[in-house]
Amino acid sequence: MSFLALTIPISLLLGAIFLALVIREIRKGAFDDFEGPAHRMIFDDDEVPERPGPDT
C-alpha cells in the first residue's frame, strides 16, 4: 500500500510535466499546420533568387 502512495503521485506528476511541455509548444503554434512542414522542407526558401535592382 505504501509503495502505491509514492509511485502513483510520482507517475502522475511526470505525466503532467510532459503534458504541460506539449501545451506550451501548442500555444507557440508548433502544431498549427500538420501538413505544411512536410511540404515546406522540400523547398529551399532561403534561396529565393533576388532580382538585381536598377543600379546593380
Binding site: 503534458l19 506539449v22 501545451i23 501548442i26 500555444r27 503554434g29 502544431f31 498549427d32
Partner: peptide, 8 residues
C-alpha cells in the same frame, strides 16, 4: 490550438 489542448 485550444481544441487540441483540450483533447490532450
Amino acid at each position: 490550438r485550444e481544441a487540441l489542448i483540450r483533447v490532450l
